[in-house]
Design a binder for these strands. Structure first.
Length: 775
DNA sequence: ATGACGACTATTTTT
DNA sequence: TAGTCGTCAT
């Protein structure tokens, strides 16, 4: 049994305390590069190995599929190392290959396969595969277990259709994009259409409610859910059905949440329900053999546009703690040692983030020596900027044989910024990969193929059905389709029912009768074999027998060839999925496909230069990082200028970028840049000024830094109004009314307060500015 | 029923 | 600028 502690030896005291945590609530405040993934994975291993927890009772929620996969892999590795010594009394690396393989497959079967590790969305979709048929929405609508998941573009066109065709609204006044955002926001706050209306009773709110209603009706008619529903429906189901909640509460005895600062209201609600069984009285909570363990860093909260709310993290201790005097220290651990970056880089990051007011104070301690200074480069335009970056990469490679192309990352604010870098990399014959942006599953041919599978799995999915009805062309025209759709709407049945009834088809459709019947027969053949035929086989045969492949072959253009290749790539992906998961469920595959981004496909150690947005870069690290486009209007993004809260989020984004670098960091900006077809003059990002000059070498000869002195006078002015605040202070705010201070947010030079107002929730206020006083 | 062309517009980040 | 959308002509 002594061998079981070998992984504990690799931890610092705080990490070890976190890993050893067994029952009850714990918040781990984990700075960038402080080894939080290690703490998470080792804790899971520790729960199983030491506390003998059944893997089936562990729920670990991550933010991306990639993080989930990595966590599984690392858990497997930890187990393999422990078991190698226990079983063979040898280190894992010294075992024969077949022994290693055996060990890993055993671990997969007994451990990893049983663990509930995944994103909120994938875990919820799994729960819904069991229980969605027990759910009724407020209008009594129901869903079946074979529900489809609508992707973004499906949702977009559905909503657009409702606005223009059904409700015949002015597209200018109600654009699909913003209505969709509004509906998504409502769902993420847990609001039904009726509840939304109550909060937004004015004209615009009424119309949006109407669209929301209709949208829900159509989702139900398609037996489909959108991304938000995947979380919202389990929450509703748990609220309306005690025994279902009881079942899952009992299932998930140990709950772990990664990136807790990125959770939103409804995700929090899900975690709360599962963890507390919705027992309102804290004294009744039974932590015996149960835990809730969350890891996060408020400074890396960059998803507020997706309703992420890091005050949820700030509230963790009061939400889940017992409130006893020593609760604060018992339920929180800070990981402050950074194992990733050189001290220079860390100092820059610390100074930068100090300018934020909304944060928990946290000092990252360097463990890796000072390193080279940061280099700041000012370019005339984005072409020169790209040239500089690529030249530097070449230079680095020449001078440092230990680096490969995979050691470099170019990080930017928006996908659109990748272009000039790509061009140069191509010209220089440097291998690179772009992460994010266009998704594999967003390609037309892939969506077509997936739509075939969706209709096989869920014939009510009219959105998918309409997509493939005349794809490839089989002579079913617009008018025919329209009358079929009208018929289905009038009868209130799914389009598929009309199509599969020969009498109806021959009555409604003219010339197209024959092809429709043929099409329906084809699909029916495979529907009948859904349990017996491998998914990949279904896909391939459908693509062949529908004539999809033939049509692409006939075209013979380069584009068509590409598409063809992609269809076969999809086939391979399905094969691999079936192999990996040992599942032949078409629904499992479709869920995975709908919920995967190509961030997940990023393969590390590929020896390619990585290009990606700052958002995609979270959680990654590279020896050499180029953070480009540091200009006002680029980073911080134009839409954040003028709004202090948004600027803070942009600053966190910049902070995430800076903290990706291990050895060397480059910051670049341009004097002018092409924006929407116009050349625009650019001034350096305010964030550049916030990084201490002594850490930076630059190609800019005379530095104009008047601004920093301005902001420091402003700061000293603010501190004069400083009073010392304490948690529990009651205040009166001239707009929000009476409230209570729940947190002191010390942000270096500024201090903010989190104040809870009854009915309004928690707000973050700057006491030196806000119209408030202590009472 | 299909393709081509031109006009238009939208500019953030993603499960 | 570039991608999308709709209209027009075939």
């Amino acid at each position: 049994m002594t061998t079981q502690t070998s992984y504990l030896d690799q931890l610092n005291p705080s990490q070890r305390r976190a890993v050893k945590h067994f029952c009850g609530p714990l918040l781990v405040v984990a700075g960038a590069g402080s080894g939080k993934t290690r703490a998470l994975t080792y804790r899971i291993a520790h729960l199983i190995l030491y506390h003998k927890v059944d893997p089936e009772n562990i729920l670990a929620v991550t933010f991306t599929n990639k993080a989930a996969r990595e966590m599984k892999e690392r858990i497997e590795k930890t187990f393999a190392q422990e078991l190698a010594i226990e079983k063979y009394e040898q280190r894992l690396e010294l075992l024969k290959e077949y022994q290693q393989k055996q060990l890993f497959s055993q671990i997969y079967k007994n451990i990893t396969k049983k663990l509930w590790i995944g994103t909120f969305h994938s875990l919820c979709s799994r729960i819904l595969r069991y229980d969605i048929n027990k759910y009724r929405d407020e209008k009594g609508r129901t869903w079946q277990r074979n529900f489809s998941i609508m992707d973004d573009s499906d949702v977009q066109s559905l909503i657009k259709n409702i606005i223009t065709k059904q409700l015949k609204l002015d597209e200018k006044k109600f654009e699909a994009r913003s209505v969709r955002y509004e509906i998504s926001k409502a769902k993420n706050l847990g609001l039904s259409p009726a509840q939304y209306l109550r909060e937004n009773p004015e004209y615009k709110g009424k119309i949006i409610t109407e669209i929301y209603e209709e949208y829900q009706a159509q989702l139900a008619a398609n037996n489909a859910l959108d991304f938000d529903d995947l979380i919202l429906i389990p929450v509703r189901l748990f609220e309306q059905n005690e025994s279902i909640l009881g079942y899952w509460h009992n299932q998930f005895k140990h709950i772990l949440v990664d990136e807790y600062q990125d959770t939103n209201r409804i995700q929090y609600e899900l975690i709360r329900l599962l963890s507390t069984n919705d027992e309102p009285n804290k004294k009744e909570w039974n932590w015996k053999d149960r835990s809730i363990f969350v890891v996060g860093d408020a400074d890396q909260s960059i998803y507020s546009f997706r309703m992420a709310d890091f005050t949820i993290l700030l509230n963790f201790q009061s939400d889940f703690g017992d409130g006893l005097p020593d609760d604060d220290t018992r339920t929180m651990i800070k990981l402050e040692e950074n194992y990733r970056s050189r001290e220079n880089i860390l100092q820059a990051a610390n100074k930068l983030i100090e300018n934020n007011t909304q944060r928990i104070d946290k000092i990252l301690k360097a463990t890796r020596g000072i390193g080279d200074t940061i280099f700041c480069y000012r370019a005339d335009n984005e072409e020169i900027e790209a040239e500089f970056v690529i030249n530097k990469i070449k230079e680095f490679r020449r001078n440092n044989p230990e680096l490969n192309w995979g050691s470099f990352a170019i990080l930017y604010r928006m996908n659109a910024h990748s272009r000039p870098f790509e061009d140069r990399l191509v010209n220089s014959n440097i291998p690179y990969q772009i992460v994010g942006g266009f998704k594999f599953y967003d390609r037309q041919e892939i969506k077509d193929a997936i739509a075939y599978l969706k209709v096989i799995s869920n014939p009510s999915d009219t959105v998918s059905l309409l997509r493939i009805l005349n794809t490839p062309r089989r002579g079913i025209g617009k008018t025919t389709i329209e009358s079929l759709v009208t018929a289905s709407q009038e009868l209130g049945v799914p389009l598929w029912e009309i199509l599969s009834d020969e009498t109806s088809v021959s009555t409604i459709a003219g010339r197209a009768v024959k092809s429709i019947n043929q099409f329906v027969k084809l699909l029916q053949t495979f529907q009948a074999q859904i349990e017996t035929l491998p998914v990949a086989e279904i896909l391939l045969q459908l693509m062949e027998q529908s004539g999809y492949i033939a049509e692409l072959k006939n075209k013979g253009t380069e584009e068509a060839d590409n598409r063809l290749a992609n269809v076969f790539e999809l086939y391979n992906a399905v094969l691999k999925f079936t192999e990996d998961t040992e599942s032949n469920s078409i629904q499992d595959y479709l869920a995975t496909a709908s919920l995967s981004s190509d961030l997940d496909d990023l393969r590390e150690g590929q020896e390619k230069v990585s290009l990606m947005t700052l958002h995609s870069a979270k959680g990654l690290e590279f020896p050499v990082v180029f953070l480009v486009g540091l200009e006002q209007g680029t980073l911080p993004h134009m839409r954040s200028l003028g709004d202090p809260l948004s600027i803070e989020e942009e600053r966190r984004l910049c902070y995430v970028g800076v903290t990706r670098a291990q050895e060397q960091l480059f910051l670049t900006h341009t004097k002018e840049r092409f924006v929407w077809g116009n050349r625009e003059g650019k001034i350096p990002s305010q964030f550049l000024e916030e990084i201490p000059q002594e850490l930076v070498t630059t190609n800019v000869k005379t530095k104009t830094r008047q601004n920093s002195s301005v902001s420091s006078t402003k700061r000293s002015h603010q501190t004069t109004k400083d009073i010392s605040w304490e948690v529990g202070d009651r205040i009166y705010h001239s707009i929000f009314g009476e409230g209570e201070v729940t947190h002191i947010l010390a942000g270096g030079k500024r201090t903010n307060l989190a104040v809870k107002f009854s009915g309004l929730g928690q707000k973050i206020l700057d006491p030196t500015v806000a119209p408030m006083e202590r009472i």
